Amino acid sequence: MKHCWILLLTIIFMGCNQTKKENSSDIENNNEVMPVEPDGGIGDGALSIVDLYIASIEKAHKKEEFLKHKAISFRINLSFGGKQRLDSKITMLTNSTKIRIDKKDGSKLIYTGEKAFLCPKDANEKGARFDMFTWTYFFGMPYKLSDPGTQWELGNNKSLDGMDHQTAKLTFEAGTGDAPDDWYIIYTDLQENTLKAAAYIVTYGSEGNTSKAEADPHAIYYKDFKIVDGIPFATHWEFFGWTEEKGLTDKLGEATITDITFLEEEGTIFETPDNAKEITL
């Protein structure tokens, strides 16, 4: 009987040592193991499943490295229905708080973070707000997924070009921006975690009546990723109709993104030029 107790104590002692080794290994590899709470993150000290999902996208798009740069510029050539919609150079702070659009016709749109200006004063301001905020949002979307006021719900896998992609729905808290009723359904690559597409509605100006926008959702499909300073950017965008059942439907337009360049100093880029007038967005 004495020998049995000795054997039992030996087994327990060996088991405790093994547990300590496993715990030690987890601590040593802390940078590679992210604690996840399967209940959605009710407890303390761990990322919820949704937060982990968003973090994985931001990591894939090198958000931390992107935000280390002060500003970024790119050219966009955009067409819808076979007609050119925009041919411009866009410059924006990487945190999206300031924007400048230099159009092919010589006119300029500048957003200082508080006010918007059109130059020259007699330039056509039709569509100014849409041009100012829509294309910059689509360009910077991978870096804005965890902005204040964002709300997320994981969805099912959906097919995109015959391959399954994880989906998630983005909505906004009341009072977030000037169109909190907008929503997006994003598609991400299951292997690379990159943002590949986003269905969306545009409700600005609807005064709370979103039925028209929800009856005609669109989608942007990000293609032809290229690496600039270690960061992936989609250099070809395609726009489609979209339904919950079918996904992408008819192609509506496309955009080519070129000359992506980081800027380390803001300088005078966002200062109001002469012969400009303030406009309401």
Score class of each variant (00 low, 15 high):
193 N>Y: 13
126 K>M: 03
214 E>G: 01
185 I>R: 02
143 Y>G: 01
191 Q>K: 15
226 K>M: 14
229 D>I: 01
173 E>H: 04
232 P>L: 06
214 E>H: 04
198 A>S: 14
159 S>L: 15
226 K>L: 14
207 E>C: 00
209 N>H: 09
235 T>A: 08
206 S>F: 04
213 A>P: 02
129 R>L: 09
174 A>Y: 05
123 A>D: 12
228 V>S: 11
118 L>G: 13
222 Y>F: 15
235 T>E: 09
153 E>D: 08
139 F>R: 08
146 S>L: 03
127 G>R: 04
188 T>P: 00
191 Q>D: 14
215 A>L: 03
154 L>T: 06
137 Y>S: 13
191 Q>V: 11
118 L>S: 10
234 A>M: 08
177 G>D: 09
133 F>T: 06
190 L>N: 15
195 L>H: 09
208 G>D: 10
191 Q>L: 12
146 S>D: 14
131 D>W: 09
158 K>P: 00
143 Y>N: 03
206 S>N: 13
213 A>H: 06
132 M>T: 12
202 V>R: 04
128 A>V: 02
160 L>M: 01
130 F>V: 03
165 H>V: 00
169 K>N: 01
231 I>R: 06
229 D>Y: 07
141 M>D: 02
216 D>V: 01
137 Y>T: 14
216 D>Q: 06
131 D>G: 03
191 Q>T: 14
125 E>Y: 13
157 N>E: 14
140 G>E: 05
130 F>E: 11
196 K>N: 13
170 L>D: 02
212 K>Y: 12
122 D>W: 13
178 D>R: 05
204 Y>R: 10
204 Y>V: 06
141 M>N: 05
125 E>P: 05
156 N>L: 13
120 P>S: 08
118 L>V: 08
119 C>A: 15
196 K>C: 09
173 E>Y: 02
230 G>T: 05
133 F>Q: 04
221 Y>D: 12
221 Y>M: 04
181 D>S: 05
146 S>N: 15
153 E>I: 07
143 Y>I: 00
216 D>T: 04
151 Q>Y: 03
166 Q>K: 13
